[in-house]
Structure formats: C-alpha cells, structure tokens
Nucleic acid binder design. Sequence first.
DNA 1: AGAGTGATGTGACCAAGTCTCATCACTGGT
DNA 2: ACCAGTGATGAGACTTGGTCACATCACTCT
Lengths: 208, 208
Amino acid sequence: MRLGHITLATVMGQRLVHSWVMARWKPNAPERLAEAALDLFAERGYEATTVAAIAQRAGLTKSTFFRYFADKREVLFGGLTMDQLLAAGIAAAPDSATPLEAVADAFELLGNDVFTPDRRQFSRRRRAVIAANPELQEREALKGLRIGAAMVEALEQRGVPAITARVAAHVASLSLTMAYTRWSEGAEDFADLARRSLTELRAASASF
Amino acid sequence: MRLGHITLATVMGQRLVHSWVMARWKPNAPERLAEAALDLFAERGYEATTVAAIAQRAGLTKSTFFRYFADKREVLFGGLTMDQLLAAGIAAAPDSATPLEAVADAFELLGNDVFTPDRRQFSRRRRAVIAANPELQEREALKGLRIGAAMVEALEQRGVPAITARVAAHVASLSLTMAYTRWSEGAEDFADLARRSLTELRAASASF
DNA sequence: AGAGTGATGTGACCAAGTCTCATCACTGGT
DNA sequence: ACCAGTGATGAGACTTGGTCACATCACTCT
C-alpha cells in the first residue's frame, strides 16, 4: 500500500482527502471485502449474496475480489494460517513433552496470535454463517483436515510414531474445535479453554 | 425403470432392440453417469471435464445429470449412505459392548454392504481422482464429518457420555479412513482391516 | 382411443470464476 | 520538468456450473 503526503486520491469515483496521510486507494481491501461479505451473508444468506454485491459494498469490483480470494467461500477463511503456527508450536515444544503436551504448547500460540479478543465477535458471526451453509462447511472441513495433517507431520518430526501421531492429532483437532466453539461463544481466554478441552479429552480417551 | 415386452425403444436417437426384456431408456442412468465421470476425470482431470461431456459419454444430457446429482462433485459420492448404516450398526450392538466394540460391529456391516470386492477397483480409481483435486477433497472431508457426527449421535443414544462419544467417534473415523485406504489399495477383506486398524488405534491412544 | 406418467431433452438464464487489456495516480531517474 | 515504469484497480468478454420452465415421447391404464 503506497502512501504519500497531502494529496488527492480518486477512489471509486469519489475524491477523498485525508489531513495527514494520503492513500492512493482505500486501505485494506481484503479486510473490507471480508467484512462486507460477512455482513451480507448474515443479512441475506450466503447463496443470496453475489460476489458483485460484496465487492460493491466494499467499494470495489468483482475483479478485485477474485484477486484477493480464490473463490467466494475463501473470503471467510482467508486470513488464517493455523497450519504453520501449529507446526511451529509443536516443533518448538521441549523434547521431553509428550505429543499432547506439545500440542498444548502450540495452542498457546494460537491464543496469542489468532484467537485474540478483538476477533471474537467476527468469529462468532462467521461461525453462524458457516453453520447455515453446507458449501462453507465443506471448506471448513477441508481446512480442518489440513490442520490435522500439519499436526501429524509436526509430531512425526519430533519422533512420534506415525500411528500415535495420527491419533494424537485427531484428538487435538477435536480439542481445537471444542475450544474454538467455546471461545467464540463465551468470553473466556482461548488458551485456558484449549488446555481444558485437551485434559477433558485425555480423560475421556481412557474410557473406551 | 419401466419394462415392457418385445417393443422398440428410442433412446438417444438410436433404436434399441432387446430380445427378451425391453427398456424404454437405457437402464441405470446414474450408474452410467458415475462411470463416465470417473473415466473422464481419470483421463483429463476433474477440472478439464465438463458436465456436458460426462453426460454425453453416458448418452445423456446436462439436464439429466443434474436431475440425479446435486452437483458435479456428487457424482463420485452419490451412492454411499454410510451414515445410516453405521448408526444402525452401532445401535444394534449388544448393550455390554464398549463404544469401540459397537463401532467395530458397525464396521462389519460396511464390509458386507459397502466395501464389497466388486467395488474395490472403482474405489481405487475414485480415490486417485479425489486425491488430485481439492474441490473433491472438500466434499469428502464434509462427508467424513457427517459420518463422524452420525457415530457420535448413535453412541450417545447408547448412553455413552457426550465427550467419550466424540473421542470414540473421532478415533473410529480415523480407523475407517485407514481401513478404507488399505482396502482399496490392497486385496484384503474390509472387515479384517477395520478390526485391525481399530485395535492399532486403541493401542496407540494409550501412549499419549 | 384418449388421458396420464415419467424419464428425458431444449433452451433461456444467472452467477462463479478466468483472462486480457485498459486506467491512472504515483514513483524514480535523467 | 519530463517520461517511462509500477501496481492496485476496473472493464468486459468468455466458459461453465447450476436452475428452471416447458416440450417430448414411448409406454400405461382405463
């Protein structure tokens, strides 16, 4: 994003004047698109919302939308890169940590970088929209699989046997889902919720 | 499918004559579409294959395709209704069965009704096509979630506590995936593979 | 014989997604 | 001051997935 000094910028046919900092275009196009999309999805539903309408509300066009998002669904999934964060967190855990302890360490990172309090409201609305639409559930399901696969790989690189890694990653995925649900719907800290759900599941997996 | 006696049938512009049994249309339209689709997906790739091309190879039209399948992807997922089979199997397990034992019983049903030897070749090709395309992976991921949800519900109706049910269902899903992979790629009996993967995972879940 | 019936075909239509090219405010060097 | 980039955006044509209303036509039933 280019910035200049006290200039004029023609944006979407309107002239904008800023006192101190000038932007050639309105900033944060992807963010604006995501918010416009969430608004419209919540108002009219996902199917009844066209990409053109989203772009228009964000003061942009269909072209620009698809420049930032691979498809219409991705506008609700764009920012997140939990795969890498989790992989990094698992890799950084002390050698003495068990698989689930390593996962717990990684979840701390998520609490700091992803599930921050300012995103809770957005996440809550996003969840409601996704819950109402199978197309979006598909995208979320696939993201979940990718996250699980990333955890499996990270655990294997710690020397965890393949099967143990897969079971642990599956349990961790479930734990993540539970913690995320509770986090977005309540007011608690994500890291706390993640710890709690992990211990709950560890206990439950003893009673097969 | 209507049948008559020794008549003529005009099908796709060609006249077909059968000696004993007459069909007004070529039979098994959905099956023919699914096979045509798998052929073309394998040849040219999923994206490069249009629905019109699939329909044409099956001797039908786009309209008919969408009459049988909700969308292009579904042509590879149409037949399976594992949800209900698994739910029924879990419900039918003896009261004394542990969650994973009930799941094991349900897997027997799958071996008899779904993963039969005659479908192995189709499944192998299907898996290869899905592995090559994210859109299809999304659909499969969602089906997996639905199957897991069905197992959770069935387990809860047996009186299994909610959290135990969720963990057990997740482990069962992983087991199902593993067994399915091995079944489609090898030559073994599905029920055997399912039993084996379940015991493997039970053992692995002790070493968190 | 004539009125269904049911699987299929036809064609128009909308929206998702791709692609190529144009625009235009700003930048940086000469 | 000028002029050739540069980069985010727009314009518009095009393909394809998916929907819908309606036509067709061989066969069935009364």
